[in-house]
């Protein structure tokens, strides 16, 4: 940790603060999630630290509740996407042959539609419930996780120690769990950060388009959408939730970037 650059420390600090706010936000929040507490677009004051929104709700309160909603959905989607993508990726890499071809080609087809476009198509008939959002984001995103985990696992699966285990007569589960998985974790951990950023931005984009987390629940992308007009009046209100989104993804990216650089440095040395 001695050589951790400033940028990575900055990233870690921001992530820690966000995690704290996401967990304890509702207890800290001064008002109720969708309580109307004043006039529309009040400026910052001692009562409303960040002012009020287009319906007269306290922005700080909405931001704190929104942290929990937005981050929780993005995190759940990322976890699901990893569970799905990694299982399929490892299966394809270790079994190979027809199984690999079948899964890989199907993923290719799904990936040949831009994620947002595919989500829009699906959401045109599905309701925008939290569960649907998590499932849609997770399934679409798992294609990327599949690609990476398959590639990494293929690299490991051709190693002689995996062949040794197969020659010994070990079962598929054991080979994946004990021989392949531990050796694929470092790149996948970095990828988890990137995929979380993606899910988080994706969810925010959907909410911004009015197709994400539905009102009255607070959500950062939706807050930008609700208050978009304020910009025309010279108010910075929509920039606050948008900035909150940007800050978290920048922070995660800084940490991931440092991790990846470190990994490539170590590889270069080997």
């Amino acid at each position: 940790m001695r050589n951790t650059p400033l940028s990575a420390w900055f990233g870690f600090t921001i992530i820690a603060i966000y995690a704290f706010l996401a967990i304890f936000g509702p207890w800290i929040a001064p008002y109720g999630e969708s309580a109307i507490v004043g006039d529309v677009w009040l400026p910052m004051s001692s009562e409303h630290w960040l002012g009020t929104d287009n319906l007269g709700r306290d922005i700080l309160t909405r931001l704190l509740y929104g942290a929990q909603n937005t981050i929780a959905v993005a995190l759940a989607a990322t976890l699901l996407s990893f569970a799905l993508g990694m299982s399929l990726g490892f299966l394809a890499a270790v079994v190979g042959g027809f199984t690999d071809q079948a899964i890989s080609r199907s993923v290719d087809v799904v990936m040949s539609i831009p994620t947002l476009i595919f989500a829009l198509v699906v959401l045109s008939v599905l309701p925008s419930s939290t569960l649907v959002l998590i499932l849609v984001i997770a399934v679409l995103d798992s294609t990327r996780v599949f690609r990476l985990s398959r590639a990494v696992a293929v690299d490991v699966a051709v190693m002689d120690f995996v062949e040794v285990a197969r020659l010994r007569g070990e079962g598929l589960g054991w080979v994946i769990r004990r021989e392949v998985l531990p050796n694929t974790l470092p790149p996948l951990i970095a990828e988890f950060g990137l995929r979380f950023c993606f899910a988080f931005l994706f969810l925010s984009a959907l909410s911004f388009l009015g197709l994400g987390i539905q009102p009255p629940a607070a959500d950062w992308g939706g807050m930008v959408r609700d208050n978009a007009n304020a910009v025309s009046f010279g108010l910075t209100i929509p920039l606050i939730p948008a900035g909150a989104i940007a800050l978290l993804t920048v922070a995660v990216n800084l940490v991931v970037d440092w991790q990846l650089n470190r990994a490539s440095l170590l590889r270069g040395r080997a």
Partner: peptide
């Protein structure tokens, strides 16, 4: 350049858009 582009990648398109509106259109 690396930090600048990394930050840009991390920002949602609508954030960049509204910041530009705020600076160049409104202010």
């Amino acid at each position: 350049i690396s930090i600048a582009t990394l930050s840009t990648i991390s920002m949602p398109e609508f954030f960049v858009g509204y910041v530009l509106i705020f600076i160049f259109a409104v202010t």
